[in-house]
Design a protein around this nucleic acid. Structure first.
Lengths: 200, 200, 200, 200
DNA sequence: CATGAATGAGCTTTCATTCAT
DNA sequence: TATGAATGAAAGCTCATTCAT
């Protein structure tokens, strides 16, 4: 069924094209006419591909949440020291900061129209979060969930603070500080672990 | 004689009453009729106190950004160890998490209708951010801006991750981890400083 | 009952003060708040003197329609030739053109909210029109109603054309032309009358 | 393929349909819903063809000011005496009095929302007035602008007086009187002209 | 499939009017 | 009497959605 594939392919292209619009103006402030104009189709066509404005928005949300983490994984290829891996990740965020800002604003928007408990039960989101967690765990070479969360919260926090307050924080500065703290922490942990070994 | 009303006082009361509504539904999805009904006045009265919906929203935003940090400062009273202070702050955030979620969602909303450069130039916001920074600096007993930013980004990040992903992170766990890392880091720094002292 | 007199006197003062406002903006575009502000009272006071906006407007309309023609009559004092009387009247209109424009615009407005047959049945208006007619008859020293109407229509027409088209017509030019035509006509009529006399 | 609609043609049809409504009620008293209902479309459609109520009204005003004077010119076809031409013009006005009343009321309304100097500078209006002037000049077989203005003011005045005071004046009566006066005047002028001829 | 004219519910806002003070 | 805060019906206008072409 090649037709269907084309249809679905085109649908995704349309979604991609209205990502910026939703991010910059917010769901409720964007009109179907604006979307149609922005992506160069008629409102009729829009409704041919999406049953409603809300459906379009939700599909957009799902779309970027389903994107694989391939590009992110590539970031760590052939990088061997912890410091370099941390730097690489923070650099990656810095490079794509504008995209993360937009994704973040759309997500905020999405949360205001959905029942919160429903969102938190969403399997795709859960799986997505876990993929991210695994990625960070591998990068930091640790299995301690607290440390993984710590890193993820820090990265998220830097981005949000930069979005709301401007360049009051810098990615590389925080990356170095984090690397230093993490190294000291991991050393400390392994010290205590070896302490305990004779005991066990 | 007219009805005796403290115009400005009443205006602020009205603002307080519609905080939740804006946070839960988002600026554009809330109607003036809903607001009026929610806070128990007529739409006419709403327009007697605010020239427009946007003005109302902006005043709401300004209002909670101008609130003093008194209650936050009280958190640190009579607390003497670093560990307790960190725990106290994270506890404070945990206790008021719902309020922070709302403030955060409103802020996201606000950013989508304003020119970003204009917001970042806003003096009140700048001052507000600096007050927060000073507060954290005092709590951590450090003057290193990188460390202060680190703490603020971490705290912000935990809140945001919890808002978007649910209870995948816990405040106290992260507080302990942060305290541990910070302590190790500060020790390390003071070690190197004493190394350098003879040189100078 | 002195209070009543004061009340009524004050009412008329208020009316006078909002004449310009109604003329310049039109009945429906003027708000009670604007009126109140313009004449320096509160809306409450306005409603103390007038039961409604419409009543206020109708009273305003009646008010200037009831004004006596004293000032107009004074125009003809000690003027003895027909030419001078015609010139005096046209001059009078020219001098007070702005007032006539306003009166005219208010009247137009009034006609759009009233049933036309009702207006035309109004006794005050009828009497007013007849007073004007008598005045013109006396000024032109003629009893021919057609001539009186002719003069009144001409004067009205000049004013309206000037309001709508600007200074494309001038009062004095038209006054002279009218005097010339009228003189020739009256001569002609009296000629024929004397022709007829022997017949009767 | 979209629905085939001659946008501009349909726009003008809609304008024509709301002429009476505006004339009878006045701009500010007519609501967009009333207009829509009256002309049998939805408010949405109204806004599809006109950006605002004011734009609709201004286009209506322009529309009847741009209508050619063809029908008026036809009035004079195959009429050879001055008396007949004057009678024909006054008859024409009498026949279309209702339309002129309406046009006039709309114009009055229009003047209350526009800056007066702007209106008087309007080229279409100027040209329109001049077309009327030329028409009258041709009908009266005179080049004297004062006489042309005289006739136009008289005709306008009769109409306005009839609108405001009812049938206190009659077109044919005034037409005859005007013809008489004009004939006498033109004779008189040509007499003096021939007097002067020997001199030159 | 694609178009955009048409719809009408519902939005923000205004304003004549009321009434407690 | 005088005030102006409060009201809510109704205005101008928007926009998601439908559907004839």
């Amino acid at each position: 069924m090649p037709k269907i594939v084309d249809h679905d392919q085109y649908r995704k292209e349309l979604l991609t094209k209205c990502f910026d619009l939703f991010a910059n103006k917010g769901y409720a402030s964007v009109t179907m006419r604006q979307i149609a104009q922005e992506i160069g189709v008629s409102t009729g066509t829009l409704y041919h591909y999406f049953p409603s404005k809300q459906a379009l928005f939700w599909q957009l949300y799902d779309e970027f949440n389903e994107r694989d983490t391939a590009s992110m994984n590539a970031v760590l290829n052939n990088i061997h020291t912890l410091q370099e891996r941390i730097t690489a990740i923070f650099d990656y965020i810095a490079q794509n900061e504008d995209y993360f800002f937009k994704q973040f604003l759309i997500t905020s928007d999405f949360y205001q129209q959905q029942d919160r408990t429903e969102i938190l039960a969403n399997e795709t989101l859960k799986r997505n979060y876990e993929l991210n967690r695994d990625f960070v765990a591998k990068a930091l070479e640790t299995d301690d969930p607290a440390v993984v969360n710590f890193a993820m919260c820090l990265a998220t926090g830097i981005m949000v603070v930069r979005l709301f307050e401007g360049n009051v924080v810098e990615y590389d500065e925080q990356a170095q500080l984090f690397h230093k703290m993490l190294t000291l922490y991991l050393q400390d942990v392994s010290l205590h672990e070896s302490d305990e070994l004779p005991v066990s």
